[in-house]
Simulated scan of single mutants.
Amino acid sequence: MTDNEYRKTRKAAVDALIYWAKTGMRQFSMRDAVNNHLEASGANRPSIGGTEAILARRKIAANRLAIDCLYALSKDELSKVDRELEDIVENVPKYGCVMKR
């Protein structure tokens, strides 16, 4: 992934977070945008540290998104974003899970 593509995923996640915090609409698309950014940032890559390392990297990337939202949000909206980002960080998506009959 190029640096320009990474910036686009971060901007899309920040824009989605701001829109959701201000209107309360499009929560699922906001969660998808944040998860796409976390994946693009490499926060979900397995490493020696196991799940603790993945959670720590996801938390760092989510905090960066919250910092990028500071300019546009009020105190209440920012706390709403922080709570939602904590929930997203703790729910690591499981890739490769296939439902079978």
Rank of each mutant, 00 (worst) to 15 (best):
T2K: 11
D3M: 07
D3Q: 07
N4I: 14
N4D: 12
E5P: 04
Y6F: 14
Y6A: 06
K8F: 06
K8H: 00
K8C: 00
T9V: 07
A13C: 06
L17M: 09
I18R: 05
I18Q: 05
Y19R: 07
T23I: 08
G24Y: 12
G24W: 12
M25Q: 07
R26H: 12
F28K: 11
F28Y: 13
M30S: 06
R31K: 09
D32G: 07
D32W: 15
D32C: 10
V34K: 04
V34Q: 04
N35D: 09
N35R: 14
N36W: 13
N36Q: 11
L38F: 05
L38D: 00
A40V: 08
S41L: 08
G42Y: 10
G42K: 10
N44C: 10
N44I: 11
R45I: 13
R45P: 03
R45Q: 11
R45T: 10
S47C: 14
I48Y: 15
I48N: 12
G49D: 13
G50L: 13
G50Y: 15
G50V: 12
E52I: 12
A53F: 10
A53H: 09
I54V: 14
I54T: 09
L55V: 06
L55T: 04
A56R: 10
R58S: 01
R58G: 00
K59V: 00
K59Q: 03
K59Y: 04
K59S: 01
A61I: 03
A61N: 02
A62Q: 02
A62D: 01
R64G: 01
L65Y: 04
A66T: 02
D68G: 02
D68A: 10
C69E: 01
C69N: 01
L70P: 00
L70V: 06
L73P: 02
S74K: 07
D76C: 00
D76Y: 08
E77H: 08
E77Y: 11
L78K: 07
L78S: 06
L78M: 11
R83C: 07
R83E: 09
E84S: 10
E86F: 12
D87N: 09
I88G: 01
I88E: 03
I88S: 03
V89P: 03
E90F: 15
E90S: 09
N91Q: 10
V92I: 14
P93V: 12
Y95P: 04
Y95S: 09
G96P: 12
C97P: 11
C97A: 15
V98I: 15
M99P: 11
M99D: 12
K100Q: 14
K100M: 13
R101P: 10
